[in-house]
Nucleic acid binder design. Sequence first.
RNA 1: CGGGGCGUAGCGCAGUCCGGUAGCGCGCAGCGUUUGGGACGCUGAUGUCGGAGGUUCGAGUCCUCUCGCCCCGACCA
Length: 478
Amino acid sequence: MAQSVTPRSEDYSRWYTDVVQMAELADYAPVKGCMVIRPYGYALWEAIKEGLDRRFKATGHQNAYFPLFIPESFIKKEAEHVEGFSPELAVVTHGGGKELAEPLIVRPTSETIINAMFAKWIQSWRDLPMLINQWCNVVRWEMRTRLFLRTTEFLWQEGHTCHATAEEAQEETLRMLDVYADFAENDAAIPVIKGRKSDTEKFAGAVRSYAIEAMMGDRRALQAGTSHFLGQNFARAFGTQFLDKDNELKYVWQTSWGVSTRMVGAVVMVHGDDQGLILPPRLAPIQAVIVPIWKSDEDRYSVLPVARQVLAQLEGAGIRARLDDREEVSPGFKFNDWEMRGVPVRVEIGPRDVEKGQAVLARRDMLGREGKSFVPQEGLESRVAKLLATIQKDLFARALRFREENTYQPRSYAELLEVVERGFARAYWCGSPECEARVKEEGKATTRCIPFDQPDEPGACAVCGKRAEEVAIFARAY
RNA sequence: CGGGGCGUAGCGCAGUCCGGUAGCGCGCAGCGUUUGGGACGCUGAUGUCGGAGGUUCGAGUCCUCUCGCCCCGACCA
């Protein structure tokens, strides 16, 4: 940890890779495109998991687990689905030393195998809605990979639900998008734009896809979660039918929705700075770190007990705290070390503080003098708790301001192309794939979503000038 | 798959043109001094020089083949 990371202004993607590795979130695995999530990174993922899982349970979902292997024939049952995924499938052809009668696909997502089970379990309208989620790993053979953002194997959750009517399924699709947005904004402090995906950007096999889109520190877009209205596409392919109240056999209406370890990458890129990670307090594995400072042994004996006492105070208040009592590194080193790891609050306690019965609080999101305050040891835990809440709020506000400052409303095509190089473009779009393709070709930007939040008036498509009912977010994306 | 680059200590690199006993920085280990913003000194450990074959008295260096990785262009959470 002797060096610092590549500055963001110099090379953003190197900054990202540096931070991920130096903060010990993840490391490259021996297998190309794969990563090892290290304990600190996994703790962050666990916090994300807990935040989401709590919300899934609160909205009536249950966790289950479906197998890693999917018969090849299953994938092929839904035409659009196969086409979308076949280039990136990992296929198992041998097992137990013999060639398999039917190759097995390592799941890229589980719609097919889950539907095979749903078809068995669902008989009656009384079995609906079926609200299932699973936490698992999936594999997609990606060409260009990046830690957390795009890896060959990644962790995620995939929700799969069945409903009696299209309306209910549609409601569920939007409910889960709201759950994602709520998590992103309140726990991860990441402002997101909720919207519908264009046809070219939607999930292979879905009728409609929705997403939450966030702006990263380099002004590029990242899809942080998606929710799909699947209609009856998979139900028809797998014969997932139920006998309705009117005694008619009907296909179920379905949804699926997912958030992956990519969310970790989003947290890094939305909040981080040149010192390293900045973690939102709600997700931070360590919310406050105590750094004791001493010069002599004598100091040490007076400082350490106080530091331990403060640790107990913080833990007693439910704050995830840690005392860094390492003796082999200097306080300055520790400051930088914990800043790299993004710990929101640092508590410094030295001989002078012990004398005065105080401690120094330092905010990770405000470096230097500006972010420091001198507070009494008494009642420290409530001050830290309050400070954590403030930091949580401030991180969100800062990210929101950044996104707004870098969002443009271009009126001409030339302006759209220009603006897309430095941020999000909110532009009228006629909805034609041709216009979308042209922006992708000439501006390297795609439609991220058609936001729910729309202007009152129709306008002219920023690309072709024809009448456009809606605006879309155009941006360069991860 | 097309274009560019790189494989030498845990990491980052020099050495390769011009063959002659494998080096630097960081990290690591031991000891001592240090500690309010990345401490310092001394001592020490660590290498199939990506792999195979060849040329040569002698190859990290020259030749042939091979493997792997990274970066840039067509897909995706």
